[in-house]
C-alpha cells in the first residue's frame, strides 16, 4: 500500500512538472501569437486561426503521430523521455493559451496603444506598460486553462513518450495502466487527484475572469 502511495505521488509530481514545463515553454509564443492574431488584419487571418485551433479538435493521437514523425527526424532523440512528454503536452495546450490571451487582447481599446505611441513611446514599451497590464488577467486565465489541459494530456503523450514509470507516466497514463490491470480502486484514487487539480485550475480561471469583468 505504501509502495502504491509512493508511486502515486511520483505520478502526481511528474504530471505537475511536465505540465509546468510545457506551460513555461508555450508562454512566450502563446502571448506573441495571441497578440499578433488580435492585431493582424491582413489576408489569411482565418486560415491562421483555423490552423492554430486544430489541436483542439484533432484526435490527440493524431497530433502524437505527427510529433513522432517530426521528433524522430531530429538528431538527438528525446523520444520516450519526459522531454518529449513536455513537447506533446505543449502542443496540445497551446491553442487554449492563445484563445484565452487573445480574447483579452481583443478587449483592449486599440486607441490606448495608439495614444501611447504618440506620447513618444516605442512599441515594446507600449506593450509592457499598456497592453500586457491590461490583458494580464485574460493571459493568466488562458494559462490556467492550458495548464489544466496539460495535466490531463494522454493521447499525444503516449505516442511520443510511452508510459515509463517515473519518466513519462503521468496521472492520466497511470489511470489507464490501473484500468488495464483491473485495479479500479487505485484508478479511482488517481481520478480523484486529477479532478482536484483540474477543479483548482478552472475555478481560479473563472474567479480571475469574473473579477476582470467587474474591474472594468
Amino acid at each position: 500500500m505504501t509502495h502504491q502511495v509512493a508511486n502515486e505521488i511520483v505520478a502526481l509530481a511528474l504530471t505537475l512538472r511536465i505540465a509546468a514545463c510545457a506551460i513555461v515553454l508555450i508562454l512566450p509564443f502563446g502571448i506573441l501569437a495571441a497578440y499578433g492574431l488580435s492585431r493582424y488584419r491582413g489576408p489569411g487571418k482565418s486560415l491562421i486561426e483555423t490552423l492554430l485551433a486544430l489541436p483542439l479538435v484533432l484526435p490527440p493521437v493524431a497530433i502524437g503521430l505527427i510529433l513522432l514523425e517530426l521528433l524522430s527526424r531530429s538528431t538527438s532523440s528525446i523520444l520516450f523521455t519526459w522531454k518529449s512528454a513536455v513537447i506533446a503536452t505543449a502542443a496540445m495546450s497551446f491553442p487554449l493559451l492563445v484563445r484565452g490571451a487573445r480574447s483579452a487582447f481583443d478587449a483592449i481599446d486599440p486607441r490606448l496603444a495608439d495614444v501611447a505611441r504618440t506620447l513618444g513611446r516605442g512599441p515594446l514599451y507600449v506593450f509592457w506598460r499598456v497592453t500586457l497590464p491590461l490583458a494580464w488577467r485574460g493571459v493568466v486565465g488562458g494559462l490556467l486553462t492550458a495548464f489544466a489541459r496539460a495535466l490531463g494530456e494522454f493521447g499525444a503523450t503516449i505516442v511520443v513518450a510511452g508510459s515509463i514509470p517515473g519518466e513519462t507516466r503521468t496521472l492520466s497514463l497511470a489511470i489507464f495502466q490501473h484500468i488495464e490491470a483491473g485495479r479500479d480502486a487505485a484508478a479511482m484514487r488517481l481520478v480523484g487527484l486529477s479532478l482536484a487539480c483540474a477543479f483548482l485550475c478552472l475555478w481560479s480561471t473563472e474567479r480571475l475572469l469574473l473579477r476582470s469583468k467587474r474591474g472594468r
Binding site: 481599446d109 490606448l112 495614444v115 501611447a116 505611441r117 513618444g120 513611446r121 516605442g122 497590464p133 491590461l134
Partner: peptide
Amino acid sequence: PPEQRRIGYVPQEAALFPHLSVLENLQFG
C-alpha cells in the same frame, strides 16, 4: 513612426490608460 513625430493626440472620449492613476497618465510620455 508616431513616437518620433512629437505630435500630441487626444482621441475621442480621451482614451486615458485605465490601469494608471491620473498622475501616471500625465507622466506616461
